[in-house]
Simulated scan of single mutants.
Amino acid sequence: MKMNFTVLSGLLQSTRGLLLSGYVAFGLSFMLLLQSNSPGLYRFSALLFCLLLLAAHHYLSIRALFDARLLEALAQSEQPLHEVTADLDQSLIQFKLMPQAKAGRGWTERFQGCIRLLKAQACLLFMQYLALICLAFWTLTINYQAS
């Protein structure tokens, strides 16, 4: 079971690369918006959308890194798993990071939640690059029509 903690912790730590890629997508989108000849309201709306995607991506990255560090600490713990789990649940509830109703879940369910978090982050990254591609076509179209 401890190997599951170690493997999933390592996987969740790969979130840094995903986040950096998201920042690249945002930076390129921002540069395209600066070069666009489109009206200000459209540029502002597109920039706001890209910022919201980046903020959501950044939030998920923070959550994934937090989970990675928790899993790493649990893997290194010498206490029995059921005691560590109870302590973890109590701490998360105390700091209002987890609702009381989720206490006592099994580790299979928790691991699946971590994987869903990583998949959600990958989905947001995909959305950022899709927005970049749409902005590129939009900028090319606007600039072509202006000339």
Rank of each mutant, 00 (worst) to 15 (best):
residue 2 K to F: 13
residue 2 K to L: 11
residue 3 M to Y: 12
residue 3 M to D: 15
residue 3 M to W: 09
residue 3 M to A: 15
residue 4 N to L: 11
residue 4 N to Y: 11
residue 4 N to V: 07
residue 5 F to I: 00
residue 8 L to P: 02
residue 10 G to T: 02
residue 11 L to W: 11
residue 12 L to I: 06
residue 12 L to V: 03
residue 13 Q to V: 09
residue 16 R to S: 14
residue 16 R to N: 13
residue 17 G to E: 03
residue 18 L to E: 09
residue 18 L to H: 00
residue 21 S to N: 00
residue 24 V to L: 11
residue 27 G to D: 06
residue 27 G to V: 01
residue 28 L to G: 02
residue 29 S to D: 01
residue 29 S to Q: 01
residue 30 F to M: 00
residue 30 F to W: 06
residue 32 L to M: 11
residue 32 L to C: 11
residue 32 L to T: 01
residue 33 L to M: 11
residue 34 L to I: 09
residue 35 Q to E: 09
residue 38 S to H: 07
residue 39 P to D: 08
residue 43 R to P: 04
residue 43 R to I: 10
residue 43 R to L: 15
residue 44 F to I: 03
residue 45 S to H: 01
residue 45 S to G: 03
residue 49 F to H: 03
residue 49 F to S: 10
residue 50 C to Q: 06
residue 51 L to E: 00
residue 52 L to N: 01
residue 53 L to N: 00
residue 53 L to R: 02
residue 55 A to F: 13
residue 55 A to W: 11
residue 55 A to L: 05
residue 55 A to H: 04
residue 56 A to I: 04
residue 57 H to V: 07
residue 57 H to T: 12
residue 58 H to Q: 12
residue 59 Y to S: 06
residue 62 I to K: 10
residue 62 I to V: 05
residue 65 L to A: 14
residue 67 D to R: 14
residue 68 A to Y: 03
residue 69 R to S: 15
residue 70 L to E: 11
residue 71 L to C: 12
residue 72 E to V: 10
residue 73 A to N: 10
residue 73 A to C: 08
residue 73 A to Y: 08
residue 74 L to Q: 07
residue 74 L to C: 12
residue 75 A to F: 10
residue 76 Q to F: 14
residue 77 S to N: 08
residue 79 Q to V: 06
residue 82 H to S: 15
residue 83 E to L: 14
residue 84 V to T: 13
residue 84 V to K: 06
residue 84 V to Y: 03
residue 84 V to M: 10
residue 86 A to E: 10
residue 86 A to W: 05
residue 89 D to C: 08
residue 92 L to C: 04
residue 92 L to N: 05
residue 93 I to T: 05
residue 94 Q to I: 07
residue 94 Q to H: 14
residue 97 L to E: 04
residue 97 L to R: 01
residue 98 M to R: 05
residue 100 Q to L: 14
residue 101 A to Q: 09
residue 101 A to M: 06
residue 102 K to S: 15
residue 103 A to L: 02
residue 104 G to D: 02
residue 106 G to Y: 01
residue 106 G to W: 07
residue 107 W to N: 00
residue 109 E to F: 13
residue 109 E to V: 13
residue 111 F to W: 11
residue 114 C to P: 03
residue 118 L to S: 10
residue 119 K to G: 13
residue 119 K to T: 14
residue 120 A to W: 02
residue 120 A to Y: 06
residue 122 A to T: 11
residue 128 Q to N: 09
residue 131 A to S: 10
residue 132 L to K: 01
residue 136 A to V: 05
residue 140 L to W: 10
residue 142 I to W: 08
residue 142 I to G: 04
residue 143 N to Y: 06
residue 147 S to M: 12
residue 147 S to D: 10
residue 147 S to V: 10
